[in-house]
Amino acid sequence: MMILEQLRKDNPLIICITNDVVKNFTANGLLALGASPAMATEKLEMDEFLTHAGALLINIGSIEEGDIENMLAAAKYANQHDVPIVLDPVACGASKFRKDFCLKLLETYDITVIRGNASELQALTGEASMKGTDADTSLSTEDVARAAYKKFNCAIVVTGEIDAICVNGKINLIENGTALLTKVTGGGCLLGAVVASFIYNETKPTLESLTEALTTYTVASEFAERASNGTLPGHFAVNLIDQLYLIQESDVAENRLVKEV
């Protein structure tokens, strides 16, 4: 069963605690897709917001010490209201502060999906060094996904040249996408929000629902590259918002490149 059409009908509220660099891009991307974004962060209102939310995104891209209480409170209330949580552990291999926070969050609360690049996920499962948000392209996303699932026992999405999704030990590999997603600030961060949108109200998402989330986004990115001046990063970013608005379930079904392993 495809989710995109139902998502657009339901217009789920997605709470995005995300980094300062990408808030506008993320909100516009979700609006184009058909979700309803709220960039709420204050712990004092989080209980009320999450009463009505379909999903929560926690993205640590510009995390500061003062953000920790807000993020932990959000996770607590999300668990209380059975709201799925997507964690984007941005650059968690670049500093002990980031990694320690992510591990604390994962140990304390039920996280539904962890979405990151291979270096970020490897840092959470063991040792990996990063220069900012850069990913080690020599890593196998499939192997990293398996290791992360084994450690955290939740759905895992690892992005790279080939994306890997692991749910209940089963893996799908996705070969759609474009390198231009790495030339735009927030390409990966918006994907985390898109994943949250596709699993709204589902704390036990299926491999199929996560595969649809990724293929919808990556096929839209391919369409954005082919659109007017799409090989230029600035135009590509605008085109991506447009293509998330235009894309249909049939487009995804006809263009997705998915391999079960």
Results as ranks from 00 to 15, higher is better:
54 G>M: 10
31 L>D: 06
7 L>Q: 07
8 R>D: 05
173 L>T: 10
24 N>R: 08
182 T>H: 06
51 T>E: 15
236 F>L: 04
158 V>H: 05
31 L>I: 14
27 A>S: 13
148 A>M: 06
210 L>P: 05
144 V>M: 07
28 N>V: 04
54 G>K: 01
145 A>I: 11
226 R>G: 08
127 E>R: 13
27 A>L: 03
248 Q>G: 08
47 D>E: 15
7 L>H: 08
216 T>F: 11
212 E>R: 09
45 E>K: 09
213 A>F: 11
240 L>I: 03
19 N>A: 06
209 S>P: 09
205 P>R: 10
127 E>Y: 15
182 T>R: 14
96 K>V: 14
225 E>S: 09
227 A>Q: 11
110 D>Y: 09
237 A>D: 02
205 P>C: 14
241 I>K: 00
44 L>A: 13
46 M>E: 06
46 M>L: 14
143 D>M: 03
154 C>R: 10
78 A>L: 12
108 T>R: 13
58 I>E: 07
167 V>L: 14
83 V>Q: 05
148 A>G: 08
100 D>C: 11
101 F>V: 07
249 E>Y: 08
242 D>N: 14
184 V>L: 00
226 R>P: 05
12 P>E: 10
2 M>E: 15
199 I>P: 06
70 N>F: 03
60 I>G: 08
124 L>I: 07
249 E>P: 09
38 A>E: 03
138 S>M: 08
48 E>P: 00
110 D>W: 04
150 K>N: 14
232 L>P: 02
72 L>S: 11
222 E>Q: 12
226 R>T: 07
103 L>S: 05
95 S>R: 12
44 L>F: 14
237 A>E: 01
35 A>P: 07
84 P>I: 11
236 F>E: 03
103 L>R: 10
53 A>L: 11
141 T>S: 11
168 N>R: 13
168 N>S: 15
104 K>N: 14
25 F>V: 01
144 V>Y: 02
58 I>N: 01
23 K>G: 07
94 A>C: 11
247 I>Q: 02
37 P>V: 11
56 L>V: 11
60 I>Y: 04
211 T>L: 14
197 S>I: 03
121 L>R: 05
165 I>T: 09
20 D>I: 06
242 D>Q: 09
224 A>L: 00
68 I>H: 04
90 V>K: 05
209 S>Y: 08
104 K>W: 00
25 F>A: 00
22 V>Y: 01
183 K>T: 01
160 G>R: 04
66 G>V: 10
18 T>D: 04
26 T>K: 02
41 T>F: 15
49 F>W: 13
140 S>Y: 07
142 E>T: 00
74 A>R: 01
118 A>Y: 07
132 G>K: 07
